[in-house]
Protein backbone atom coordinates (compact mmCIF):
# COMPACT_ATOMS: atom_id res chain seq x y z
CA UNK A 1 0.00 0.00 0.00
CA UNK A 2 1.33 3.38 -0.90
CA UNK A 3 1.75 5.74 2.02
CA UNK A 4 0.11 9.04 1.23
CA UNK A 5 2.59 11.86 1.22
CA UNK A 6 2.01 15.55 0.71
CA UNK A 7 5.60 16.72 0.48
CA UNK A 8 6.91 15.21 -2.71
CA UNK A 9 5.30 15.28 -6.11
CA UNK A 10 4.76 11.68 -7.01
CA UNK A 11 5.15 9.79 -10.24
CA UNK A 12 2.74 7.21 -11.47
CA UNK A 13 4.14 4.03 -13.03
CA UNK A 14 5.21 4.54 -16.62
CA UNK A 15 3.13 2.76 -19.23
CA UNK A 16 4.60 -0.50 -20.44
CA UNK A 17 7.49 0.00 -22.82
CA UNK A 18 7.37 -1.45 -26.29
CA UNK A 19 4.14 0.14 -27.41
CA UNK A 20 5.43 2.74 -29.80
CA UNK A 21 1.97 3.84 -30.72
CA UNK A 22 0.74 4.01 -27.14
CA UNK A 23 -2.01 6.60 -26.76
CA UNK A 24 -0.51 7.68 -23.46
CA UNK A 25 1.10 11.06 -22.97
CA UNK A 26 2.86 12.46 -19.98
CA UNK A 27 0.87 15.34 -18.56
CA UNK A 28 1.56 17.54 -15.56
CA UNK A 29 -1.31 18.35 -13.25
CA UNK A 30 -0.58 21.37 -11.10
CA UNK A 31 -3.03 21.06 -8.24
CA UNK A 32 -3.77 23.63 -5.55
CA UNK A 33 -3.40 21.71 -2.30
CA UNK A 34 -4.68 22.79 1.08
CA UNK A 35 -4.85 20.70 4.21
CA UNK A 36 -5.61 22.60 7.41
CA UNK A 37 -4.39 19.62 9.42
CA UNK A 38 -0.92 20.09 8.02
CA UNK A 39 -0.44 23.73 7.15
CA UNK A 40 -2.31 26.99 7.02
CA UNK A 41 -0.87 27.69 3.59
CA UNK A 42 -2.20 26.41 0.31
CA UNK A 43 0.39 25.44 -2.25
CA UNK A 44 0.69 24.18 -5.78
CA UNK A 45 1.84 20.60 -6.23
CA UNK A 46 2.80 19.07 -9.56
CA UNK A 47 1.85 15.53 -10.46
CA UNK A 48 3.27 13.98 -13.59
CA UNK A 49 1.23 11.08 -14.83
CA UNK A 50 0.96 9.25 -18.08
CA UNK A 51 -2.55 9.18 -19.30
CA UNK A 52 -4.59 8.87 -22.44
CA UNK A 53 -5.44 12.45 -23.49
CA UNK A 54 -8.90 11.26 -24.49
CA UNK A 55 -9.61 10.72 -20.82
CA UNK A 56 -11.09 13.39 -18.63
CA UNK A 57 -9.56 15.51 -15.89
CA UNK A 58 -11.59 13.48 -13.41
CA UNK A 59 -9.84 10.31 -14.59
CA UNK A 60 -6.50 12.02 -14.03
CA UNK A 61 -7.54 13.04 -10.52
CA UNK A 62 -8.62 9.47 -9.85
CA UNK A 63 -5.32 8.17 -11.13
CA UNK A 64 -3.43 10.56 -8.89
CA UNK A 65 -5.57 9.75 -5.87
CA UNK A 66 -5.54 6.00 -6.39
CA UNK A 67 -1.96 5.52 -7.55
CA UNK A 68 0.11 8.45 -6.36
CA UNK A 69 -1.27 10.39 -3.43
CA UNK A 70 -4.31 9.15 -1.55
CA UNK A 71 -4.66 12.40 0.37
CA UNK A 72 -5.79 14.31 -2.70
CA UNK A 73 -9.33 15.38 -1.85
CA UNK A 74 -12.12 16.30 -4.26
CA UNK A 75 -15.84 15.74 -4.68
CA UNK A 76 -17.37 13.64 -7.39
CA UNK A 77 -20.31 11.36 -7.59
CA UNK A 78 -21.87 10.54 -10.93
CA UNK A 79 -18.75 11.08 -13.05
CA UNK A 80 -21.08 11.84 -15.95
CA UNK A 81 -21.91 15.50 -15.70
CA UNK A 82 -25.23 15.27 -13.94
CA UNK A 83 -24.72 15.42 -10.17
CA UNK A 84 -22.85 18.71 -10.12
CA UNK A 85 -20.27 17.69 -7.50
CA UNK A 86 -17.02 18.27 -9.31
CA UNK A 87 -16.99 21.85 -10.52
CA UNK A 88 -13.44 23.13 -10.27
CA UNK A 89 -11.22 25.77 -11.76
CA UNK A 90 -9.24 24.03 -14.49
CA UNK A 91 -6.67 26.13 -16.36
CA UNK A 92 -8.33 29.20 -14.86
CA UNK A 93 -11.83 28.38 -16.03
CA UNK A 94 -14.65 26.80 -14.07
CA UNK A 95 -15.62 23.42 -15.47
CA UNK A 96 -16.75 19.98 -14.44
CA UNK A 97 -13.72 17.70 -14.17
CA UNK A 98 -15.89 14.85 -15.49
CA UNK A 99 -16.78 16.72 -18.69
CA UNK A 100 -13.37 18.14 -19.52
CA UNK A 101 -11.17 16.10 -21.84
CA UNK A 102 -7.45 16.37 -21.23
CA UNK A 103 -6.75 16.78 -24.96
CA UNK A 104 -8.80 19.98 -24.97
CA UNK A 105 -6.56 21.61 -22.36
CA UNK A 106 -3.25 21.78 -24.27
CA UNK A 107 -1.74 19.07 -22.03
CA UNK A 108 1.80 19.80 -23.23
CA UNK A 109 1.71 22.58 -20.63
CA UNK A 110 0.94 21.97 -16.95
CA UNK A 111 -2.81 21.78 -16.35
CA UNK A 112 -3.81 23.77 -13.28
CA UNK A 113 -6.60 22.48 -11.09
CA UNK A 114 -7.89 24.44 -8.10
CA UNK A 115 -11.00 24.84 -6.03
CA UNK A 116 -13.77 27.14 -7.26
CA UNK A 117 -13.41 30.68 -5.97
CA UNK A 118 -15.45 32.72 -3.53
CA UNK A 119 -16.25 29.86 -1.17
CA UNK A 120 -14.22 28.64 1.82
CA UNK A 121 -11.73 25.96 0.82
CA UNK A 122 -12.03 23.12 3.33
CA UNK A 123 -9.44 20.79 1.84
CA UNK A 124 -7.74 20.67 -1.56
CA UNK A 125 -10.59 20.99 -4.09
CA UNK A 126 -13.45 20.74 -1.61
CA UNK A 127 -15.24 23.99 -0.71
CA UNK A 128 -17.96 24.85 1.76
CA UNK A 129 -21.13 24.97 -0.35
CA UNK A 130 -23.41 26.24 2.44
CA UNK A 131 -23.53 29.89 1.34
CA UNK A 132 -24.28 28.73 -2.20
CA UNK A 133 -27.20 26.55 -1.10
CA UNK A 134 -28.40 29.23 1.30
CA UNK A 135 -28.90 31.56 -1.67
CA UNK A 136 -30.65 28.72 -3.49
CA UNK A 137 -33.03 28.14 -0.55
CA UNK A 138 -33.68 31.87 -0.27
CA UNK A 139 -35.31 32.03 -3.72
CA UNK A 140 -37.83 29.32 -2.77
CA UNK A 141 -37.03 26.79 -5.51
CA UNK A 142 -40.25 24.80 -5.25
CA UNK A 143 -43.75 24.97 -6.73
CA UNK A 144 -45.97 27.48 -4.96
CA UNK A 145 -49.71 27.40 -5.64
CA UNK A 146 -52.89 28.74 -4.11
CA UNK A 147 -56.21 27.00 -3.65
CA UNK A 148 -57.02 23.34 -3.54
CA UNK A 149 -54.79 20.76 -5.07
CA UNK A 150 -56.10 19.44 -8.36
CA UNK A 151 -57.12 15.80 -8.50
CA UNK A 152 -54.95 15.21 -11.56
CA UNK A 153 -51.67 16.53 -12.91
CA UNK A 154 -51.25 20.24 -13.57
CA UNK A 155 -51.41 20.55 -17.34
CA UNK A 156 -49.13 22.84 -19.29
CA UNK A 157 -48.88 23.57 -22.99
CA UNK A 158 -45.69 22.77 -24.87
CA UNK A 159 -45.05 26.49 -25.37
CA UNK A 160 -45.48 27.23 -21.68
CA UNK A 161 -43.02 24.46 -20.87
CA UNK A 162 -40.59 25.80 -23.46
CA UNK A 163 -40.58 29.21 -21.76
CA UNK A 164 -38.36 28.05 -18.90
CA UNK A 165 -36.84 24.95 -20.47
CA UNK A 166 -33.28 26.29 -20.41
CA UNK A 167 -33.22 26.91 -16.67
CA UNK A 168 -34.57 23.45 -15.80
CA UNK A 169 -31.21 22.02 -16.87
CA UNK A 170 -29.29 23.36 -13.88
CA UNK A 171 -27.40 20.77 -11.81
CA UNK A 172 -26.39 23.20 -9.03
CA UNK A 173 -22.69 22.73 -9.60
CA UNK A 174 -21.87 26.34 -8.61
CA UNK A 175 -19.57 26.81 -11.62
CA UNK A 176 -21.49 29.96 -12.54
CA UNK A 177 -21.82 31.55 -9.10
CA UNK A 178 -18.17 30.92 -8.27
CA UNK A 179 -17.08 32.46 -11.59
CA UNK A 180 -18.89 35.73 -10.88
CA UNK A 181 -16.65 38.62 -9.78
CA UNK A 182 -19.52 40.26 -7.92
CA UNK A 183 -19.93 37.07 -5.88
CA UNK A 184 -16.17 36.91 -5.22
CA UNK A 185 -16.29 40.37 -3.73
CA UNK A 186 -19.57 40.10 -1.90
CA UNK A 187 -20.89 36.66 -1.09
CA UNK A 188 -24.23 38.14 -0.10
CA UNK A 189 -25.13 38.49 -3.78
CA UNK A 190 -27.60 35.73 -4.65
CA UNK A 191 -25.43 34.72 -7.56
CA UNK A 192 -26.35 33.36 -10.99
CA UNK A 193 -27.32 29.84 -9.89
CA UNK A 194 -29.97 31.05 -7.43
CA UNK A 195 -31.37 33.41 -10.07
CA UNK A 196 -31.43 30.62 -12.66
CA UNK A 197 -33.43 28.45 -10.28
CA UNK A 198 -35.79 31.30 -9.42
CA UNK A 199 -36.23 31.86 -13.16
CA UNK A 200 -37.21 28.21 -13.53
CA UNK A 201 -40.27 28.84 -11.32
CA UNK A 202 -41.01 32.50 -12.08
CA UNK A 203 -41.66 31.61 -15.73
CA UNK A 204 -43.50 28.36 -15.02
CA UNK A 205 -47.17 28.86 -15.89
CA UNK A 206 -48.21 26.42 -13.14
CA UNK A 207 -46.48 28.36 -10.40
CA UNK A 208 -48.07 31.21 -8.46
CA UNK A 209 -45.15 32.33 -6.33
CA UNK A 210 -43.45 34.33 -9.08
CA UNK A 211 -44.31 37.68 -7.55
CA UNK A 212 -42.73 36.68 -4.23
CA UNK A 213 -39.55 35.47 -5.91
CA UNK A 214 -39.32 38.60 -8.04
CA UNK A 215 -39.60 40.67 -4.88
CA UNK A 216 -36.76 38.69 -3.30
CA UNK A 217 -34.56 39.24 -6.35
CA UNK A 218 -35.47 42.94 -6.41
CA UNK A 219 -33.52 43.18 -3.21
CA UNK A 220 -30.16 44.82 -2.55
CA UNK A 221 -28.40 41.48 -3.15
CA UNK A 222 -30.58 40.49 -6.09
CA UNK A 223 -30.44 40.78 -9.87
CA UNK A 224 -29.49 44.47 -9.91
CA UNK A 225 -26.01 43.57 -8.72
CA UNK A 226 -25.42 41.64 -11.94
CA UNK A 227 -22.94 43.49 -14.17
CA UNK A 228 -23.46 41.33 -17.26
CA UNK A 229 -19.92 40.01 -17.13
CA UNK A 230 -21.04 36.77 -18.86
CA UNK A 231 -18.60 34.67 -16.80
CA UNK A 232 -21.57 32.56 -15.67
CA UNK A 233 -22.72 31.80 -19.20
CA UNK A 234 -19.16 30.83 -20.17
CA UNK A 235 -18.80 28.61 -17.12
CA UNK A 236 -22.08 26.69 -17.22
CA UNK A 237 -21.36 23.05 -18.11
CA UNK A 238 -25.01 22.59 -19.04
CA UNK A 239 -24.88 25.34 -21.64
CA UNK A 240 -27.57 27.36 -19.89
CA UNK A 241 -27.76 30.96 -21.08
CA UNK A 242 -27.34 32.17 -17.52
CA UNK A 243 -26.87 35.87 -18.21
CA UNK A 244 -29.92 35.84 -20.45
CA UNK A 245 -31.98 34.28 -17.66
CA UNK A 246 -30.83 37.01 -15.28
CA UNK A 247 -31.74 39.67 -17.84
CA UNK A 248 -35.18 38.11 -18.22
CA UNK A 249 -35.75 38.41 -14.50
CA UNK A 250 -34.64 42.06 -14.64
CA UNK A 251 -37.02 42.69 -17.51
CA UNK A 252 -39.88 40.99 -15.66
CA UNK A 253 -39.23 43.24 -12.67
CA UNK A 254 -39.22 46.38 -14.80
CA UNK A 255 -42.30 45.54 -16.84
CA UNK A 256 -44.11 44.62 -13.64
CA UNK A 257 -43.62 48.23 -12.46
CA UNK A 258 -44.31 50.12 -15.64
Amino acid sequence: MATPTLEKSGKAPEPEAGFADSPYITATFRIRRFNPEVSEDAQWQDFQISIDPKERVLDALHKIKWEVDGTLTFRRSCAHGICGSDAMRINGKNRLACKTLIKDLSPEKPITVEAIKGLTVLKDLVVDMDPFFQAYRDVMPFLITKGNEPTRERLQSAEDRERFDDTTKCILCAACTSSCPVFWNDGQYFGPAAIVNAHRFIFDSRDEGGEQRLEILNDRDGVWRCRTTFNCTDACPRGIEVTKAIQEVKRALITRRF
Binding site: E40, T120, D130, Q134, G187, Q188, D221, G222
Partner: peptide, 16 residues
Protein backbone atom coordinates in the same frame (compact mmCIF):
# COMPACT_ATOMS: atom_id res chain seq x y z
CA UNK B 1 -7.79 28.41 10.19
CA UNK B 2 -9.55 28.33 6.84
CA UNK B 3 -9.89 31.49 4.79
CA UNK B 4 -13.53 32.51 4.67
CA UNK B 5 -14.81 34.83 1.97
CA UNK B 6 -15.86 38.26 3.13
CA UNK B 7 -19.58 38.55 3.87
CA UNK B 8 -20.86 35.12 2.98
CA UNK B 9 -24.56 34.42 2.83
CA UNK B 10 -26.08 32.71 5.83
CA UNK B 11 -29.57 32.12 7.10
CA UNK B 12 -29.26 35.42 8.97
CA UNK B 13 -28.36 37.53 5.94
CA UNK B 14 -30.74 40.50 6.16
CA UNK B 15 -33.56 40.62 3.67
CA UNK B 16 -33.88 43.67 1.46
Amino acid sequence: PVIEPPRKRTGKTPKG
